[in-house]
Each structure stands twice: as C-alpha cells, then as structure tokens.
Nucleic acid binder design. Sequence first.
DNA 1: CGTCTCTTTGAAACGCGTCAATGGCTGTGG
DNA 2: CCACAGCCATTGACGCGTTTCAAAGAGACG
Lengths: 224, 224
Amino acid sequence: MKSPLLFSGLSEADVRDLLAAGQARLLKRHEMLGHQGHPADAFAMVQIGHLKLVQLSAGGSENLVRFIGPGDCYGAVALVSGARYPLSAIAVEPSQVLTWTREAIGGLTERLPQLKSNILEEVMRRMSGVLFTAQDLATTRVPQRVAHALLRLAESGGCRTPAGVQIVHPVTRQDLAELTGTSLFTVSRLMSHWEAEGLLLTRRGALTLLDPDALERAGAAAGE
Amino acid sequence: MKSPLLFSGLSEADVRDLLAAGQARLLKRHEMLGHQGHPADAFAMVQIGHLKLVQLSAGGSENLVRFIGPGDCYGAVALVSGARYPLSAIAVEPSQVLTWTREAIGGLTERLPQLKSNILEEVMRRMSGVLFTAQDLATTRVPQRVAHALLRLAESGGCRTPAGVQIVHPVTRQDLAELTGTSLFTVSRLMSHWEAEGLLLTRRGALTLLDPDALERAGAAAGE
DNA sequence: CGTCTCTTTGAAACGCGTCAATGGCTGTGG
DNA sequence: CCACAGCCATTGACGCGTTTCAAAGAGACG
C-alpha cells in the first residue's frame, strides 16, 4: 500500500504510534462502518477493500456519494465534539479498516499538529470535490456528468494498464446513476454508445477507460 | 449584531484580541474579496452587508453557490498552507469585512484552540450543507429544489415579520436559478404560481415567505 | 425621458425519466 | 450436472418536465 496522504510529513515513529493506537476491524460485504445521523464517535482509515459513502434522503432512499479505498479516511467530523456523521459508510466488499475512538484521535491530533493539518487538508479537498460535483449537477447535462463520474472514479481508484485506466471499484450502472443524478437506463445507453465508439470497455464487471481525454470531449459534445 | 458562531466559547477578552488583530476592509458593490484559484492568504468575517460566493465553471461562466452575511466567514481554507480558494467572494452591496492574514489567523488558532474548533465546526457544517444541496440536485425535481433554496435563504438570512419571513438578501430569479440548477424562466413561473396561491410575496425586490411549511409541501407535491 | 436590468408569459422542441420486455451472468441447491 | 432464482444490463417506445427562444412589460436610475 502506498503511503496515505494522512501520514504525509509524519516521522516513521509517529506513524508507528498512530497505527498502534488504532484498532483494526474487519467488515463483511454490506456491513456498515458508520451510520448517518449517529454521533460521530470514531475516525477510520481504510486499509483493505472499498466502502461506499451513502446519504439517506428525506424519503428514506439511499444514494451514493462516492467510493473510498485503501488510504482514504472516514469520519473526520469526529474531531468536532458532539457532531454526527453526515454520511453512512458501507463496505462493498470484504474490507479492513483501522479505527480510532474520538478521544484517541483527539489526543493524537493534539500531540501531532501535522496530523491535524493533514486531516484538515483532506477535509478541504473533499469540500472542493463536493462543490465541483454540485456545480456539475447544476450546470451540465447528463452525458458530461457521467463522463466526469467515470473520470473521477478512474482518478481515485484506477490502475493503469497498457490499454488504458482500469477502475477497481465494483461499480454498477445503478451506482453511476446515483453518482450523477440520473437513471440507470440513461447510463446504460450512454455507456453502450461509448463502448461502440471504443472509448471504454466493460468486461464482466471490470470497467476500463481506453481514452479518458476522448471521453471528456464526448461528454461535452453530447451535452453541448 | 448577534454574536457570531465563530466566537462561541471565547472569553470577552479573547474576542477583543481577535477583533483587534483583524483589519477592517470596505467593499463596494461587485468588489471581490477573494478570487477562486488564487492562493488563500486571508481569512475573513463579514461585519456589514452581504457577499455572494460564486464558482467559475470550466466554460468560464460564473455561478452562485450561496450568500453570506454578518457573522459568516470566508476563507477557512487559509488555515491549510499552500491552499487556494475554492470559491470567489463578491459583495452584492456595499459591505464591510474583517480580515486576517494567513499568518495572523494561524497564530490566533494556535493560541485559542476553541477558535480552531469553531472554524472546524463551521467547515463541517458547510460540508453537510453542500452535501445536502448536492443530493437535492441529484434526486429531486426543480420545484422542490427552488422551494428548498427559498427556505434555506430564509433560514440563513431571514427576518421574522408579522406576515412571515422576509429574505434580506437582494436575490434575483437568476440567482435562484443558479442556486438550483435551472433557468430563470422556470423560477419565474414557479414563483408566479406560488404568489398566486398566497405562499409568498415579491414586492420590488423584497421577498417574503408567507407560509414556509406550505411551500415545502408545494415543492414536494409539484415535484411528486 | 431613455437606458438598463429584471421579470413575465407563451409556444415549440428536446432531453431524459419512466415503464415494459428481454437476455446474460452468477451463485445456489436439488 | 442441470435448473432455477436473482441480479444486472440492454433496448425500444412513450410522455412529461424543462429548456430554449422570442417578445413585451415593469421598475430603477441617471
């Protein structure tokens, strides 16, 4: 595993302390790590596997916000006393996370200002990301939004192959539809179209972007 | 001015120091306080007037994210070294803000952990807010989104009157359209309709919600 | 009084959601 | 080993919600 951004600037000794202070937890498929609306009493970092962060709507339906994988963290809001999780985290495959209680992570951030800075930085990065997707939802058409979602997935959880960038998250059309605020039918149509044009490849669940740049352009042109 | 959330839990002496360390700045209509993409070298709190926070799209067009008024702050990202503003702030009317340089606010947050907590808490609150609007954009129809935007405006910048809640921000249909990701035509139609039903009142720029609850229901029903 | 910004309303075109029907793939159990 | 169920993907047809465009009204301000 490449070193998480969470650890940047920390000494090896500090990282060791940090890891030692956390408690590992195994998650089965569909098991929840944190519940939206419940008191944020723990902070966690994914070590193995992938989780999805979902938001419950007023109507009770769930919808996907984003995926997180190894090195990503969840529950930064636990640093605020009395806060509640704004999102739920659910394992999409058997996973392992390292968790810290609120007191533990609070104490660690006091002792390691660099850690606190790293977390704040990550929160700000997330803020920018959410602002961008909100703008995307507000101003662009469906094809471009789907293209952007694919590119974002490729960036956060992609691995380079000779043919292109392969997306490691197990992502369904329904997932993409929720990410982009559309229906799975429309996503299916778009992706069939793009696959016919040779921009991407979907083989039994594995999704590979063959030409990210062209995809960006295709989304913009179709949405025009 | 009611005491800003930024000051909660601080002693009077600390608040005095904080105010003394900041530098007041007057803004004319349309003057920019911070530029999206520029290095975040200052943190600011609005004292008088209202600003709008806008986001520049890839195409170069501006679009509105939200309004801020007295007691609200801008530029929390300045606490992260090397960060850039994710949004621009523009005065919508002659305004006054109190600004701190990055070094100044950094020093103050070191000395006053409570201040740092307050800022972090505010950032988390904003995160929840943006996540909510993103979900709204993704899952609900236009009428409900517009209703929500109006209710949000009423909550953040509303003043109670015998008739209902009056919105203090100088807000145009175009503004509402940008907030909700629709066109000003659709907003105009919706509001004409709601005004005919007696849910709200628009008199030369002043916007008053006569029955917020009914508005929420109307948005849901029309969007069904 | 004229210009500028904001608003209203109508009519037409279109994007996309919705529904229905079908087919492929995976895992499970007889 | 095969049959079944369940999940996910595909594709077409239809209708509705919204955008788009055009044209005109209403204040506000110099």
